[in-house]
Amino acid sequence: VSVELPAPSSWKKLFYPNKVGSVKKTEVVFVAPTGEEISNRKQLEQYLKSHPGNPAIAEFDWTTSG
Rank of each mutant, 00 (worst) to 15 (best):
residue 32 A to W: 01
residue 63 T to K: 07
residue 43 Q to P: 01
residue 17 P to W: 15
residue 5 L to N: 05
residue 30 F to P: 00
residue 20 V to P: 14
residue 46 Q to E: 13
residue 10 S to D: 11
residue 15 F to W: 15
residue 1 V to R: 08
residue 12 K to L: 08
residue 3 V to W: 09
residue 29 V to Q: 04
residue 6 P to F: 07
residue 48 L to S: 01
residue 27 E to F: 15
residue 1 V to H: 13
residue 62 W to Q: 01
residue 55 P to K: 03
residue 61 D to C: 06
residue 22 S to E: 11
residue 48 L to G: 00
residue 36 E to I: 05
residue 7 A to S: 06
residue 44 L to I: 02
residue 55 P to Q: 04
residue 35 G to F: 03
residue 40 N to G: 07
residue 48 L to E: 00
residue 63 T to C: 09
residue 44 L to D: 00
residue 6 P to I: 07
residue 11 W to Y: 01
residue 31 V to Y: 07
residue 14 L to M: 09
residue 48 L to Q: 00
residue 56 A to C: 08
residue 64 T to V: 15
residue 38 I to D: 00
residue 61 D to H: 07
residue 63 T to D: 09
residue 35 G to H: 03
residue 35 G to T: 01
residue 18 N to D: 09
residue 30 F to W: 08
residue 21 G to D: 10
residue 61 D to S: 08
residue 31 V to P: 00
residue 42 K to L: 12
residue 9 S to Y: 11
residue 53 G to F: 05
residue 43 Q to M: 11
residue 58 A to V: 10
residue 29 V to A: 06
residue 41 R to Q: 12
residue 18 N to W: 13
residue 18 N to T: 09
residue 47 Y to A: 00
residue 3 V to C: 14
residue 65 S to D: 13
residue 45 E to M: 12
residue 64 T to Q: 07
residue 15 F to E: 07
residue 59 E to L: 08
residue 20 V to S: 10
residue 27 E to L: 15
residue 50 S to G: 08
residue 61 D to K: 07
residue 17 P to G: 08
residue 30 F to R: 00
residue 52 P to R: 04
residue 9 S to Q: 14
residue 10 S to F: 12
residue 64 T to K: 07
residue 24 K to P: 15
residue 14 L to V: 07
residue 2 S to Y: 15
residue 57 I to V: 08
residue 35 G to S: 03
residue 32 A to Q: 00
residue 30 F to A: 00
residue 16 Y to C: 07
residue 5 L to P: 05
residue 64 T to C: 09
residue 48 L to W: 02
residue 50 S to Q: 10
residue 49 K to H: 10
residue 19 K to M: 12
residue 3 V to K: 08
residue 11 W to N: 01
residue 62 W to F: 08
residue 7 A to H: 04
residue 60 F to I: 01
residue 37 E to M: 15
residue 66 G to E: 11
residue 46 Q to K: 11
residue 26 T to V: 13
residue 49 K to G: 08
residue 59 E to W: 06
residue 44 L to K: 00
residue 17 P to Y: 15
residue 34 T to K: 02
residue 56 A to F: 06
residue 6 P to R: 09
residue 29 V to W: 07
residue 36 E to P: 01
residue 39 S to E: 09
residue 56 A to Q: 10
residue 30 F to N: 00
residue 23 V to D: 15
residue 45 E to G: 07
residue 23 V to R: 10
residue 43 Q to W: 05
residue 38 I to A: 02
residue 37 E to T: 14
residue 24 K to S: 14
residue 10 S to P: 15
residue 17 P to K: 11
residue 60 F to Y: 03
residue 41 R to L: 13
residue 28 V to I: 13
residue 53 G to R: 04
residue 61 D to G: 04
residue 63 T to L: 05
residue 8 P to I: 04
residue 12 K to E: 04
residue 66 G to V: 11
residue 52 P to Q: 05
residue 5 L to R: 05
residue 39 S to N: 10
residue 37 E to V: 15
residue 2 S to P: 15
residue 14 L to H: 06
residue 2 S to G: 12
residue 43 Q to H: 08
residue 16 Y to V: 09
residue 13 K to W: 03
residue 17 P to C: 15
residue 9 S to V: 11
residue 27 E to P: 12
residue 16 Y to W: 08
residue 1 V to I: 12
residue 3 V to H: 09
residue 58 A to S: 14
residue 39 S to A: 11
residue 10 S to A: 13
residue 37 E to W: 15
residue 21 G to K: 06
residue 22 S to V: 09
residue 23 V to K: 12
residue 16 Y to N: 05
residue 27 E to Y: 15
residue 29 V to C: 06
residue 55 P to A: 06
residue 13 K to D: 02
residue 54 N to A: 07
residue 19 K to T: 10
residue 24 K to Y: 12
residue 58 A to I: 09
residue 55 P to Y: 06
residue 2 S to C: 15
residue 52 P to K: 06
residue 37 E to R: 15
residue 8 P to W: 04
residue 20 V to I: 12
residue 40 N to C: 07
residue 45 E to S: 09
residue 13 K to C: 06
residue 39 S to V: 13
residue 27 E to S: 15
residue 21 G to N: 10
residue 50 S to P: 00
residue 53 G to Y: 05
residue 33 P to G: 01
residue 17 P to M: 15
residue 30 F to G: 00
residue 29 V to T: 07
residue 41 R to E: 10
residue 39 S to P: 06
residue 39 S to R: 15
residue 32 A to R: 00
residue 49 K to S: 11
residue 13 K to L: 03
residue 29 V to H: 06
residue 25 K to F: 13
residue 54 N to Q: 10
residue 54 N to M: 09
residue 19 K to I: 13
residue 1 V to E: 13
residue 64 T to N: 09
residue 21 G to I: 07
residue 26 T to F: 14
residue 39 S to T: 14
residue 35 G to M: 03
residue 8 P to C: 07
residue 38 I to S: 00
residue 55 P to I: 06
residue 5 L to A: 06
residue 9 S to T: 13
residue 39 S to F: 15
residue 46 Q to G: 08
residue 42 K to G: 10
residue 57 I to C: 05
residue 17 P to L: 14
residue 28 V to S: 02
residue 41 R to Y: 14
residue 18 N to V: 10
